[in-house]
Amino acid sequence: MNIKKRESTDWLLKQVFKAAGLVTIGLLAGIFLMLLYNSIAFFADVKPVDFFTGSQWDPESSTSKYGIAPLLVSTGLVTLGAMVIAIPLGIFTAAFLSELAHPKLKTILKPVIEMLAAIPSVAIGFLGIVLVGPGIAKIFGIQNGLNALNGSVLLAVMALPTVITISEDAINAVPHSHREASLALGANKWETLFKVTLPASLPGLIAAVMLGLGRALGETMTVLMATGNAAVLPKGFLDAVRTITATIAIEMGEVPYQTTHYFALFAIAVVLFLITLAINLLGEYFANRLRKFHA
C-alpha cells in the first residue's frame, strides 16, 4: 500500500471514530428534545399550573386530571425510604471493606457485591411480591404488603452495590498520611475512622449517595411489581404508591399515540429526566471535588 492511501485511510477512520463520539452527544440531545417536544404538545392542552399543583392523576376519568403531585410524592417517599436504609448500610460496609477487612476476605466480599448488582431488577421485584410483601404484611399486621415500604426495601437492595462501590473508592482515596498523622497524635483506630478518614472522604460519599439515589429514582420494574400502584397522595410508608416510572410503564402501552394522555406521559418523563440529571450532575460535582482535593 502506498503512503498516500494509508494516510487517507487514517484520516477517514479518524473521522469515523470522531463521528461515533459525536453520536453520544446526539443521543443525549435527541432524548431530551424528544421528551421536550412531546411535553410541549402536552402543555398546549393542559395548563402547567394544573399539572404541577393538581393533586389527582386520573387521565381516563371523564374529567381528565393530570396532577403530577401524587406520582412525585410517591417517587420521593419510596426513594427516601430506600436511602434511609441504603446509606448507613452501604457506607459502613464500605468502611469495613477498606479499613478492616483482611485482603483475603475482601476477595470474597467484592464478588458478593458484584453479584448483588447483577441480579435483574425484575427478580428483585418478584421477591417483593413473594417474600418481602408477605413479610411486611405479617410484621405490621396489615392485609397487603404491596406498599411504599416494600418498594423502599427493594430499592435499597438495588442501590446498595452502587453506594458501597463508590464509597469504598472514596475512602480508599484518602491518603494514608492522613490516617498515620491521626494515629501518631494518639487517636485510636475508631477515632481516626470516624473523625478523620470518613470526613475526608465526604465529597466521595456524597457522590456515592447521589448515584445510588439516581439508581433508585429511575428504577421501574421493582416498584411496578411491589408498591401497589395506587395513584393517590400517600399518607405513609404503609400506603400503596405509584411512582413516575411505574406510571409510564403501566400507561404507555395503553394510550393511543399522539393524544393528550400520551403526551402527558412524556411530560412526567421530562420531570423524571430533569431530576435524575440534576442528581447525577450533583454527584459528579462532588466526585470532582474529591479528585481535586486529593490531587
Binding site: T24, L27, L28, G30, I31, M34, L35, L211, G214, L217, G218, E219, T220, T245, I248, A249, M252, L265, F266, A269, L272, F273, T276, L277, I279, N280, L281, E284
Partner: peptide, 14 residues
C-alpha cells in the same frame, strides 16, 4: 456520564 444515569424506562420511551 449523563446517558448512563438516565432511567431505563426513558430509553424505552425514546
Amino acid at each position: 456520564r449523563n446517558l448512563a444515569g438516565i432511567p431505563s424506562i426513558i430509553y424505552g420511551l425514546f
